[in-house]
Nucleic acid binder design. Sequence first.
DNA 1: CTGGGGAAGGGGCCC
DNA 2: TGGGCCCCTTCCCCA
Length: 290
Amino acid sequence: MPRSFLVKTHSSHKIPNYGQLETQRETKGSCSTCGGLVVPFLPDEEAHSTLVGTPRPWDHNPVISCLPLPLPCDEEVRGASSPHPLGVSPVELGAGRVPSAPLRDSLNHLNLPPLLFLPMRWPPILGPSGDKVPDRLCGVVGTSRPSGCLECLHCHQPCHNGAGLTRHQHVHSDLQPKRLFSCKHCAKEYGSLGALKMHLRTHTLPCVCALCGKAFSRPWLLQGHIRTHTGEKPYTCSHCSRAFADRSNLRAHLQTHSDVKRYQCKRCSKTFSRMSLLARHEESGCCPGP
DNA sequence: CTGGGGAAGGGGCCC
DNA sequence: TGGGCCCCTTCCCCA
């Protein structure tokens, strides 16, 4: 497929609105860790089976912010929903914080586990000294001890505060199921939401050239593209003084000056300056497959 | 067919 | 957490 097809022009593509996602997270009064949106709590299967209908330590000291629940639809928010798996109503869950339909759709497409949005009417969480625990500590899975400090649910290690508990629980990272964030546009999966967000840019192409309208996933790609308009070539070969707009192209060019080519055909030992040249060589029949 | 330049895509790392 | 940067790779085109 010609790569030109991969580049969406401004005229043919709606300008992506990343602000839509961002503004959804700026709602005041929500958890600053998850933005009231996406801190999935993933109990293992056993924990999940005991979770439903069974009082847990955090029922009384909800140090966790988000429980695995379906994304509520507007109807559910208004209280016309079916019984909740945890036996609580959307109102009890503080479902006043509900993402917009487009955002909800986006989140659902991310194949995230079902989420709950941060309850707004929970009583303040009190720390060891009786002070209110800041919102930033929510998302930590733990329970309070009689002494007032927090305790790890995995090994009962006492921690003085939520941050300490968070740090401690990194040692249990192998107990957490590995989560994958799936792209709604393609089948790719990523280990973090940040990586997925980065990938999503390759679909939305938010960086648009003001001169020709071509769109790119990242600003520096656009920067490199603009050089094709300006003719700027900041990367100069020290051997032949030839200049390039792209550092990688200079690197490839430097290979042409090298006596030793990096890529060698396993069959005929011929060497090539680029992998693509070697691949083409092999495809042309030097190394026929079995 | 081959070598090489140009342009661009995308993951990872660092600040 | 996001942006910038690095690096590698891929694809197209031309000599």
